[in-house]
Every structure is written in structure tokens, then in C-alpha cells.
Amino acid sequence: MSRPRGAAGRGSPPGEPRLVGFLYVLPALAAFAVFGVWPLLQTILFSTWKWKGIGTPEPVGLENYVDVLGDPDIYTAFLRSLVLVVFAAILPVCIGLLLAALLSRVRIRGMGTYRVLLFLPQTIAMVVVAIAWGWIYSRDGIVNEILRTVGLGGVARAWLGDFDLALPAIGLIGTWLNSGLCMVLFVAGVQKIPIDLYDAARVDGAGPWSEFRAVTLPGLRNEVIVALTLTVIFALRNFDLIWITTGGGPGDATTTPSILLYHFGFEARRLGTGSAIAVVMTVVILVVSVILVRLGERGDEGVAR
């Protein structure tokens, strides 16, 4: 701003961004500042307070972080998130790759219909998904009906009430939700891979596996990174799906960091503790996302050279 107005136009070297450019992004920047940055800063501020939401807050410095990070529950909760990452991120990416590979080799009649059907879960409100799967997993739900029909009635149970199986059961909902998303991303990506690469591979006598490894997978690197970023973030921060299906139970078998956040911040009205958990979650998610994006960039350089 030290530069006099108008100088940018005359005196600056060509290619130097003009200040007026900031004007164009101002609306978006303002919205981001008000709805993104400001709440984040507020949360960080709250996390240094002891506060019930009314009355005078008591500044306590980093005490909330000491409490949160000194509580073994938070680590157990993150471990459960990791299980969800396997089910709701890694598994869907694998399934999506498999489907994309199949669809890129085989012409399937009614292809568009399948794609829509597989993508459909993404378009349904999470609350509806959670309630519907609650029924599916219930004692008289379709899963148990099928098990009884095929003579496995002994295995039937209230899945979301089972201490060992509730978390994987929720994870599988994530698999179902995200596989379609991954597939759509990958199928679109496959179409972008030059067809002559496939021809060359086939001429060289590549089987389906080598073709997938040498052509499809490298060609989809960016899509895989995008899919992983989206689904890992989904798995790490999900609240609604877990809250509606199990509420974090039975016991604390499905209590993830976001459920802990709700318990402390809203049920116990310890806003400081809840905010501290939120900040820790934000940092973890940020670090994971940066790592994933970096992986993608490194891959790009490898391809370019």
C-alpha cells in the first residue's frame, strides 16, 4: 500500500499483478474471512478459556490442551478414527479403482445407470443415510433377515449394539457412501488417459494386472490423491453418521474425537475443552491433508521428468 495509487499501472514491470486484482477476489475473501477464518480464531480463543457459554470466561492459558492431551480417551478416539479411515477412505479408493479398471476394459450395457446408482449415496442427506442404516443393522433389519434366511441366524445380532462390531459396522456405511464417489472420480480420470497408452500396453502383451499397474494407476494419481483427501477428511471429522446410529456407544465403542467434542463442548458445556478438541482435530486433519497433497505433488514431478 506504500506505492501511490496508479503507480502499479505505469511504473511496474509487465506481469506484476496489479492491486486491482485483489478487488476481484474481495467478495470471496470477505466471505471466507467471516465464515472461515473468524470462527477458527474464535475457537482458538475459546480453547484458552474456562467458560460455560454465559457469564465471564476465565482465561486458563493452555490448561485445556493439557487436559485434552493428557486424557488417554482422546488417543483411543483417534485410533477409532483410524479404523474409520480404513473403512471409509482406503477401502472405497480400492473399490473405486477396481470398478474403474473394470469399466475401462469392458464395455458394459447401461453403464450410465450403474454409475448413477453407485454415486447415489453421495446425494442423500447424511441423516437419512444414518437412520436407514440404523434400520438395516437393527435386530429385525435386513442384514439379520438375510442371515436367518441362509441359516446363519446364530450370527444375527443388533449390530450397532455390539461392542466389537459397531465401529466396523459404521465403517462399512462409510465404504458404501464413498465408493461411488471414488469410482466416479476414477472413471472420469481414466477417460483422460490417452487411449494409445492402452494400445501400446496391449501390443506389448500386458495382461489386465500389468496394464492396470503401468497405465491406469499412474494416470489416476491425481484423482486418487483427491479421493483420499476427501474421504480421509470425511472419516476423521464425521459426526452426524455416528451420532445418529450409535451416539458413540455402546459404552464408548464408537466414540471418535468429534463425539468427545460434543460431549464436552455441548453436553457438559465446557466450551474451552470442546474448543481445544476442535483445534486438535483441525491440526490433525490439516497435517494429514498437507501430507496427502504433497504426495500428489511429488508424484507430478516424477511423471514430468
Binding site: G248, G249, P250, G251, D252, T255, H263, E267, A268
Partner: peptide, 19 residues
């Protein structure tokens, strides 16, 4: 206590679940 709802319900589910 302010956190007892969660502690009580969760612990009792564990007792009822034989955990």
C-alpha cells in the same frame, strides 16, 4: 457432575454388555 451423563450411560452399557 457435568460429564456424568456420558460416563454413567457408557459405563452401564458396558456392565449390561458383560464388558
Amino acid at each position: 457432575t457435568d460429564t456424568m451423563y456420558d460416563t454413567f450411560t457408557g459405563s452401564l452399557q458396558e456392565l449390561i454388555g458383560g464388558r
